[in-house]
Simulated assay, not measured.
Amino acid sequence: MNLKIAALLLFALCAQPAWSASYSTAAPAAKPAESAALNTRLALRDLWVEHIFWVRSYAVANQAGNTKQAAVAANEVVADATKIANSIAPLYGQPAADQLLKLLAGHWGAIKHYSDATVAKDKKGQQAAVDELTSNAKAIAAFLAKANPYLPEPTLLTLLSAHGGHHVAQIDQLAAGDYTGEARTWAMMREHILTLSDALAGALVKQFPDKF
């Protein structure tokens, strides 16, 4: 991988996550190119897991009426989305990163809308939020598919729609006090977000083989 691109990408991805050390120890014979691709994959995983963690934190705080905790969680969701968006800047440019951030902001806005409507027991507001989430998933899928030929739009839409569905189910279960059900949703949500982030990382490596 080109050293300049590698440095920029890994810096934008906010450094190697903690568990990457144990992963690389298990495969000491990895070639430099393989290590660059692996580090990118693990860094993206870390960022996307943070996304679902902080969104859940917001939903819990919001339903408990803890406005201070909810505000902190909301700020972390935005900060994480900014890191995710900026992670593509070294390869696609800052304008593309800015566009992705707008789309991710739309994703978060729809989830927040659903959470707030759930607290208010506003059924119409919940449906409007689901419609926003669906529309946003289509927009993100179209954007990423246009940017990378290794990300088919129908596949992306399926992945993103399922991701949005997990958010909705989780918020509903928390509101109903169904913590056992929410624990199952969290497990599925985490596995699914790893699948999504791995698809994104794999597509980057395929599209830019000279940089990895």
Rank of each mutant, 00 (worst) to 15 (best):
residue 177 G to K: 11
residue 85 A to P: 01
residue 176 A to L: 14
residue 109 G to Q: 06
residue 83 K to W: 11
residue 180 T to E: 15
residue 133 L to Q: 12
residue 144 L to D: 03
residue 88 I to H: 02
residue 163 H to V: 02
residue 74 A to W: 03
residue 136 N to L: 04
residue 153 E to Q: 07
residue 159 L to Q: 08
residue 99 Q to P: 04
residue 94 Q to V: 11
residue 84 I to F: 00
residue 106 G to W: 04
residue 98 D to T: 09
residue 114 Y to H: 10
residue 88 I to V: 14
residue 133 L to N: 11
residue 92 Y to H: 11
residue 185 T to P: 08
residue 156 L to E: 01
residue 155 T to W: 00
residue 162 A to K: 09
residue 121 K to D: 15
residue 176 A to G: 13
residue 100 L to H: 04
residue 107 H to V: 06
residue 129 A to Y: 05
residue 102 K to F: 03
residue 109 G to K: 03
residue 159 L to R: 04
residue 158 T to Y: 07
residue 77 V to T: 04
residue 154 P to H: 07
residue 167 H to E: 13
residue 142 A to C: 03
residue 116 D to S: 11
residue 188 M to T: 13
residue 163 H to N: 10
residue 127 Q to L: 11
residue 174 L to M: 09
residue 155 T to H: 02
residue 129 A to D: 07
residue 107 H to K: 03
residue 181 G to R: 06
residue 69 Q to V: 10
residue 93 G to E: 12
residue 81 A to P: 01
residue 174 L to V: 08
residue 111 I to W: 06
residue 142 A to Y: 04
residue 139 A to M: 06
residue 140 I to H: 03
residue 149 P to T: 12
residue 136 N to T: 11
residue 157 L to A: 08
residue 149 P to N: 08
residue 176 A to I: 12
residue 90 P to K: 02
residue 173 Q to L: 11
residue 151 L to H: 01
residue 176 A to D: 15
residue 149 P to D: 11
residue 134 T to C: 11
residue 84 I to K: 02
residue 133 L to T: 08
residue 177 G to T: 13
residue 138 K to N: 14
residue 103 L to W: 06
residue 173 Q to V: 09
residue 177 G to F: 15
residue 121 K to W: 13
residue 76 E to V: 00
residue 75 N to S: 00
residue 98 D to G: 07
residue 158 T to S: 14
residue 74 A to M: 00
residue 149 P to Y: 09
residue 96 A to I: 09
residue 91 L to C: 12
residue 132 E to S: 15
residue 142 A to N: 07
residue 106 G to T: 00
residue 120 A to Q: 14
residue 135 S to H: 12
residue 137 A to V: 09
residue 89 A to C: 12
residue 112 K to V: 05
residue 155 T to G: 01
residue 75 N to L: 00
residue 111 I to L: 04
residue 79 A to K: 05
residue 91 L to M: 12
residue 78 V to L: 00
residue 96 A to P: 04
residue 188 M to C: 13
residue 102 K to M: 06
residue 96 A to W: 10
residue 133 L to A: 14
residue 184 R to S: 15
residue 187 A to T: 14
residue 123 K to E: 15
residue 137 A to Y: 01
residue 84 I to D: 03
residue 158 T to N: 12
residue 144 L to R: 02
residue 144 L to H: 04
residue 151 L to P: 04
residue 111 I to T: 11
residue 187 A to E: 14
residue 157 L to D: 10
residue 177 G to A: 14
residue 76 E to Q: 02
residue 152 P to M: 01
residue 119 V to G: 09
residue 84 I to M: 07
residue 74 A to V: 00
residue 80 D to V: 06
residue 77 V to L: 02
residue 123 K to R: 15
residue 69 Q to C: 09
residue 94 Q to Y: 08
residue 186 W to V: 14
residue 182 E to Q: 05
residue 132 E to G: 12
residue 123 K to P: 14
residue 130 V to E: 15
residue 184 R to N: 15
residue 79 A to Y: 09
residue 97 A to I: 06
residue 122 D to P: 03
residue 114 Y to V: 11
residue 78 V to M: 01
residue 167 H to F: 12
residue 106 G to K: 02
residue 175 A to M: 10
residue 157 L to N: 10
residue 156 L to F: 00
residue 174 L to F: 13
residue 139 A to W: 04
